[in-house]
């Protein structure tokens, strides 16, 4: 990763800190890090365990000059954050990295135990000495990968992935594994499905906190008395409500990075909801969050259009 380290060092001449990854010595997988000095930058890595979307840190660091190492999917979040004024393009140095798909480390750990040795050989995977089909442990978002190479970057490191990672892994725009099952259910059964899913929710808000587009951060209406949209109880009903709030607040914002589902400690398939909405937004407004710096998010657009008020009679 000499290339990456050099690039970060170079970027540090111009910015206060760079968001990237280091290898956690205990587990051998990547963990998010901030590089303030060239010395720290020596530890920078990029590999298939760099699942985290580092764009989540940008709103809290707004106003500071930053560098960020971004995969294609992460760069989509960066784009959307810039559009929504949660990051300033001029304050940002984006170090793009070509991504050939990443692993769902948590899934591996939950199955094989935390810290199991992961040996990713690119086309195959060895886990604690056992060979496993790599496909099974790819992050789900890689199956519907839209951009393996970042769309915006100031510097690019490593090899271009040459197209969406989904193509590399053999699929593109794959629907959520549960969506077919859910489509076949009657409305009442679907409701029961979600009730069951949300009955596990512990309201830890990890889904919210890892989401780069949930930029209200500390001031979230899921927890406020004024307004009192959601009750404070921990139960399926309230959890469903807060997730509906979250999903609708992300209408036209969600770039589909999948962090919410990945972070959910109790395995609720949150991206099922997001995917559904993202498709609806694309159908209705032709808008896909993170596509272009020049786009205007449909939910933040007000224009006096024909027949806007309509006729009351």
């Amino acid at each position: 990763m000499a290339d990456l380290v050099t690039t970060i060092k170079q970027t540090l001449k111009d910015v206060e800190l760079v968001l990237g990854w280091v290898r956690d010595p205990a587990t051998g997988v990547a963990a998010p890090a901030r590089f303030h000095t060239e010395e720290e930058a020596e530890a920078a890595v990029f590999d298939s365990t760099c699942v985290h979307n580092l764009a989540v840190h940008l709103p809290r660091l707004k106003g500071r000059r930053l560098g960020i190492v971004a995969k294609g999917c992460d760069a989509r979040s960066v784009v959307e954050l810039i559009i929504e004024h949660e990051a300033e393009r001029e304050d940002l140095k984006v170090i793009g990295v070509g991504c050939g798909s990443i692993l769902d480390v948590k899934k591996i750990w939950r199955r094989f135990g935390y810290g199991v040795e992961i040996d990713d050989r690119g086309d195959s995977l060895e886990l604690g000495g056992e060979r496993g089909p790599r496909e099974d442990f790819l992050a789900r978002k890689c199956h519907g990968c839209l951009e393996a190479d970042p769309d915006i970057y100031d510097l690019f490191v490593g090899e271009s992935a040459g197209g969406p990672a989904g193509e590399i892994s053999g699929g593109r725009e794959e629907p959520h594994p549960l969506s077919a099952m859910l489509e076949d259910l009657a409305p009442a059964e679907r409701r029961a499905f979600w009730r069951e899913q949300f009955s596990r929710c512990i309201r830890c808000y990890a889904c919210r906190e890892v989401c780069p587009m949930c930029f209200c951060r500390d001031i979230c209406i899921m927890q406020t008395q004024v307004p009192h949209w959601a009750g404070g109880e921990v139960n399926a009903r309230e959890s469903e409500m807060i997730q509906h709030i979250r999903v609708s607040h992300l209408a036209g914002r969600c770039t589909g990075c999948g962090e919410c589902e990945r972070a959910c400690p109790v395995g609720i398939p949150l991206m099922l909801l997001m995917d559904e909405q993202n498709r609806a937004i694309e159908d209705m407004f032709g808008y896909r969050a993170g596509d272009s710096l020049r786009a205007r998010p449909p939910m933040q657009t007000f224009s006096i259009e024909k027949d806007l008020w309509g006729d009351e009679e």
Binding site: P32, A33, R34, C204, D218
Partner: peptide, 22 residues
């Protein structure tokens, strides 16, 4: 630096006991 301030660690913890009344 890498913390995103979610409540998972406290809610998963067997000894964290803080509660809110409302």
């Amino acid at each position: 630096e890498r913390c995103v301030s979610c409540g998972y660690c406290t809610y998963a913890c067997p000894t964290c006991y803080c509660f809110n009344i409302f």
